[in-house]
Amino acid sequence: MRYLGRSATGEFLSLYTALNPIRFNPFYLGGRPLDTEKKESIKTLLLALWKKDDETFTRSEYVAISNALGAFYKSLGKGDFPCFDSFFEFCSNEFKADLERKGVKEKDFDIDNFLYVLRPYYRGGEFDYLLNARENLDLLEQRFMVFELDNIKDHPILFPVVTLIIMEIFISKMRKLKGVRKMILIEEAWKAIAKEGMAEYIKYLFKTVRKFFGEAVVVTQEVEDIISSPIIKQAIINNSDCKILLDQSKYRNKFDGIRDLLGLTEKETMQIMSINKANEPGRKYKEVFIGLGPVSKVYRTEVSPEEYLSYTTEQTEKMKVNQMAKAFGGNLEKGIAALAAEMKGDIL
C-alpha cells in the first residue's frame, strides 16, 4: 500500500513514508522515442547512483553507459516492460557479454563494479521499489504535482536521487509542453541541489526555463543556503528578475552581505528594513518586499481568517483546526469555517 496518485480534483500527490515509499520509473518512455534529452537524464541518474559525490567519471565510462542504454532499448521486444530491473538484467547478461567480446578493459569500464553498486535498486534490494514503478508512469500532462520529501530529507542516498528524478520530470515537461505555462517551486531542497550534479541541473534550468514559457522559483529561509554553491548562486541570482523578501530584522546587523549579494540599491534596502515597522493598529497582516527589475515596493499581505487557518504553520493553531474538523465529522472545510467565525466574533 502506498500513497501515490491523483487527488479527487486531479492533482498528482506524492508523499514519502516508510510504508508508502515514492516510486518512479525513469526508463518508461510512454510510447515516445528515446530522444537525446531523455537519454542524457537517465545517464545522469545512473552516474549519480554509481559514483560518490567526490568521484568523477571518465569519458569511457560515460560512453559505455550511453551504449548500454541505446542497446537496451533496441533489445526490447513487444510486451517487454522497461524499468530498472530489466535494464539491470540486460547489463548483467547481454551487455556484459558484448563488452567481453569487444575486449573492453576493466580500467575503461568496470561492469562488475557498476552492477555491484547498483544492485540495491534491483529486485530484492533495499531500494528496489524506487525505479520500478508500474503505476502513474506518464506524468507529462499532469497539471499540478506535489512531492513531499520531509521524511527523506536527511537520507544520504534517497534524497539526492529522488530530487534528481523530480528535476528530470520538470525539465521534460518544460521542453515538451508547447505553449503551456510551466512553473517549478523548490522549497528547502538545498542539501540535494548543492551537490555538483544537481547544481548543474539548477544552472541549466534557470538559464533556459523562460525560453520554454516557464518559471523557476526557489524558497529558502537562509540566504546562505543559496550562496553555499557558487554555481547555484550565479545561476539563480543572475537569472532572477523578481526578488521577494519578508521581514529581515534578524539580519539587520549583517544585511550588507545580503544587499551586495542581491544587488539591492539604497532605496530597496530602506524599503526592506521598513517592513512591519509601522503596521496599522488593529489589523492583522504582514508586509513583503517585491522587486521586479528596477521597480520595487512594500506590500501589505492581509488574508481572510479562512485563508489564514488553511495555511497556518503554527502547531497550536493547526491542532485547533484538526480538533474542530473532527467535531464536524472530519470535514476540514466546515472546521475552518467554524473557527473563522469564532475569530470574527460571529455566532455559530
Rank of each mutant, 00 (worst) to 15 (best):
Y129K: 08
P160D: 12
L158W: 04
I171P: 00
D112Y: 11
K96M: 12
F109I: 04
N151H: 11
F109A: 03
E168N: 13
N113I: 09
I111P: 00
F170C: 00
R143S: 08
A192Y: 01
K153R: 15
Y122V: 04
F170E: 00
I165C: 11
F159I: 10
E141L: 06
A192G: 09
F144V: 07
E100P: 04
I152L: 12
Y116H: 11
P120D: 06
N132Y: 10
I193Q: 00
A189C: 15
L177I: 05
E126N: 10
L177T: 02
I171K: 03
Y122C: 04
G125A: 07
A189D: 06
P120F: 02
L164S: 10
N151D: 13
L149D: 01
I111G: 03
K107N: 13
F114I: 11
E188D: 15
D150Y: 09
K153N: 15
K182I: 01
G125V: 05
R134D: 15
R101C: 11
F114Q: 02
E188L: 08
F147W: 07
D112M: 10
F170L: 04
L149F: 11
F127R: 03
R181K: 11
L137E: 11
L139S: 10
E148F: 08
K178L: 11
N113Y: 06
H155C: 08
I166S: 02
L131C: 10
I184Q: 00
E100I: 12
I193P: 00
N136F: 07
I171Y: 07
I152W: 01
V162H: 00
Q142D: 14
F147Q: 04
V146R: 12
R134Y: 13
V146T: 12
E188W: 14
E135R: 15
V117N: 01
D110E: 08
V117R: 06
I166P: 00
F147S: 03
I186Q: 00
N132W: 10
K176V: 05
M183V: 11
V104E: 04
L137K: 09
A194K: 13
